[in-house]
């Protein structure tokens, strides 16, 4: 299953709107400008997604995941290199906390960041397609490329993979957003994209 050029473009633009909203929310939290972009959408099999993450410079990750259910279901996951995660938390809570205090706060802060970014992306899909999702609470975990949840399970799943570039207070942070979808869910997503494009007279 693959996306044609217009479907990929549409999905990229919808997520672009989502991360734009997330950046606005995060900028209110850190009281500074946040540049957040998701330049490219890739659709890959689960094993390939792991390889992309393995190709990242660091292989210790901080992840936040949330499940969304609706006309199609997705397990959404925000993945940052672990060293970046602590930096994001420091930027959120200010420079006055010690490393120990920051570490204590990390789980909660990462859940909040994940909640903002993942919900912004899914809300963008929901608004454009006029659909509704229910979501679980965000779950924060540490992991490496060998025990990330995307490697688990037998079910054939597709992964929508977005590289995220975030710049807060001159700190450049690269992460990934992953959406795991079963084949029927991916097919339902593509149907929604096609219906949307068709309703706009673009397909």
């Amino acid at each position: 299953m693959s996306l044609n050029e217009l479907q990929r473009d549409a999905l990229g633009e919808i997520f672009n709107i989502g991360v734009g909203r997330a950046a606005a929310s995060l900028s209110q939290i850190v009281s500074d400008e946040v540049l957040l972009s998701a330049p490219e959408v890739m659709v890959v099999h689960r094993e390939q997604a792991a390889k992309v993450l393995l190709g990242a410079e660091l292989n210790q990750f901080s992840t936040v995941s949330q499940s969304f259910s609706g006309p199609f279901d997705a397990q959404a996951m925000l993945v940052f290199p672990e060293s970046n995660a602590l930096e994001i938390v420091r930027l959120m809570v200010g420079p006055h906390m010690s490393i120990e205090e920051l570490s204590e706060f990390e789980q909660e802060a990462m859940c909040e960041i994940g909640n903002i970014i993942l919900n912004a992306c899914m809300s963008s899909l929901a608004d454009i397609f006029h659909i509704r999702f229910e979501s679980t609470l965000p779950l924060h975990r540490f992991g490496d490329t060998y025990n990330l949840p995307i490697l688990d399970g037998d079910e054939e799943q597709m992964v929508l993979l977005l590289q995220v570039d975030m710049i807060i207070s001159q700190q450049r942070i690269q992460g990934h957003i992953l959406f795991l979808l079963s084949v029927p869910s991916m097919s339902a997503l593509l149907d929604h994209i096609d219906r949307y494009l068709s309703s706009q007279g673009l397909a």
Binding site: E13, I17, V19, G20, R21, V34, L35
Partner: peptide, 24 residues
Amino acid sequence: CTANIQESTREAAARAGVHFVAKP
């Protein structure tokens, strides 16, 4: 015409003398 809806972008648009329109 942008998804970057932050206040800083709106202000930059105003400084540049251009009109801000939020996506979608």
